[in-house]
Amino acid sequence: MSVSPLRVENLAMRYHTQPVLEGVSFDIPAGSSVAILGPNGAGKSTLLKGIMGLAPLMQGKVSVFGGALTDQRLKVAYVPQRDESDWDFPIQVMDVVLMGRHGHLKFWQRPSSVDRALAKQALQKLDMLPYQNRQISQLSGGQQQRVFLARALVQQADLYLMDEPFAGVDMMTEKAIVGLFEILKQQQKTIVCVHHDLNTVAEYFDWVILINHGLIASGPVETTLTPEIIAKTYGGRIPLGLKLGTQRKGNGRF
């Protein structure tokens, strides 16, 4: 457990010609659950895409479990933002989840009964097994998110990168996701999420990375999520939806 699951060194990225991220470096401990926080347009999703090699890096280095991502793709699972997908696509829940097995399959192979069993287990963990034969367009937003999480789960990775899994989901789904985090943490897996809701950070995560075009802070929730650092990240404005009462509760707990 000495090797860090994810280490980013001096990373810089741009969107077209516009610089989005500069000089970002951090390191996270194994088995932790990490929230990436920052205002809209700060480059949170871009950072995740850069780590996954889905968007080009201008500068810097990403190491996963001490090596290059390309050598250990199977150890990393990515959950894209829900609204980046075509939910009218003619496909059923089970088939979407089975996509997670393709990293383990050769290009001519099809999912086996073992893969199917794994997919069923994953759906079970997210309370989605009854929906396995549904067309994806018939699901609610939260259910769609759970399908994506189940798909990441069957990848049997050690590091999970999720782009806003809590965005626009119902209470049921939020509970299911938190439950999933518990299971993953028990198995010593590492979770990295782009997150929006400051109210729930302390409850769901134990490590935070705050960015706003550059790195503001990275560290344990207890010591890092202070009002000063939050103000610095969000440019002095208290982000929408943050209730002061909840924040006090968070502070009180530490």
Partner: peptide
């Protein structure tokens, strides 16, 4: 032969890249 891969890519391009396709 390659139906499943194309279905995956057509549905979710970024994800397909993320699992190394």
């Amino acid at each position: 032969l390659l139906f499943q891969k194309w279905r995956l890519i057509t549905f979710n391009r970024q994800y397909a890249r993320s699992i190394g396709i």
